[in-house]
């Protein structure tokens, strides 16, 4: 590890927060081992249940505060799916809601100090993005058959350009899961690492550490925004990709 081996004065370990640890003991991490990943994903599930199930158990016509929040989430994602992916996309509403709730809650829970951010791991975001990619591809072929490939053949372009555009479209199609996952993981990881770096400065600067602490407060606010926006972006991009599969025409 570079920062330690070469003895810089500051002992900053911005990546420590991302280490996957077993919850019990020090054993090797097998695929079934309960780790801090398990813990924080479980907390995300509990938060989701509290937010969307417990708060709505009274099914009030005039909603309580908790139920209003649940309805807000529902309405927000429902409208997004309907607007972006079209009416056909509403069949995938529970799926997209699952993605959104998981990403949003994981991002938010990750901002609790000392917590573990599951969505900052490429493994997690890559699986999420690959799920979206596979869903879109399979649904596209299932619904449109071979006609799904016509989205790569831009019929509005001049004939000479079409093969070139087809190659570009094809590449961009396969880059989608990569950018989709790296965007989310990278944003989260960068923000958290920056906070840790500033925290390291604060430990080493004595009285002047009010500056990095103020900076941390500001960055924390920004990170709240980033957490929400990245969940939104992840979801809306899922809807955009889904439109290719279920929508009427490529544009």
């Amino acid at each position: 590890m570079a920062t330690e081996e070469h003895g810089s004065g500051l002992a900053i370990h911005p990546m420590d927060q991302f280490v996957v640890k077993p919850l019990f003991g020090d054993g090797p991490i097998e695929w079934y081992t309960p780790t801090n990943v398990t813990l924080w994903m479980g907390i995300a599930v509990l938060a989701m249940v509290a937010l969307l199930v417990l708060s709505t158990r009274r099914r009030a016509i005039v909603p309580s505060r908790g139920q209003s929040v649940a309805e807000l989430f529902y309405g927000f994602i429902h409208k997004m799916v309907e607007d972006v992916a079209g009416h056909e996309g509403l069949k995938f509403f529970p799926y997209i809601m699952t993605l959104f709730m998981f990403v949003f809650l994981s991002n938010m829970l990750g901002l609790i100090p000392m917590s573990f951010t599951t969505t900052s791991h490429i493994a997690v975001t890559a699986v999420l993005a690959l799920l979206v990619f596979l869903t879109v591809t399979l649904v596209g072929f299932y619904r449109k058959g071979i006609g799904f490939l016509s989205m790569f053949w831009v019929s509005s372009a001049p004939l000479v350009l079409r093969p070139i555009l087809a190659v570009i479209e094809l590449i961009s199609y396969f880059v989608r899961p990569l950018s989709h996952s790296i965007r989310l993981g990278g944003n989260l990881m960068a923000g958290h690492a920056v906070i840790k770096v500033f925290a390291g400065f604060a430990g080493a600067m004595g009285i002047a550490s009010v500056v990095p602490i103020a900076a941390i407060a500001a960055i924390y606010g920004l990170e709240l925004l980033v957490a929400a926006v990245q969940a939104y972006v992840f979801t809306i991009l899922t809807c955009v990709y889904l439109r290719d599969a279920v929508g009427d025409a490529h544009h």
Binding site: T56, I61, P94, M101, T118, V127, L131
Partner: peptide
């Protein structure tokens, strides 16, 4: 490890949402 627990989590969330939460909220709305 992460992928396994992620899939478990997603399946749980999906079932809770599609069986309980979303029909309920949709019905209320």
């Amino acid at each position: 490890n992460q992928i396994f627990w992620l899939l478990v989590t997603l399946v749980v969330i999906y079932f809770v949402l599609s069986k309980v939460a979303l029909p309920r909220i949709g019905a209320v709305l």
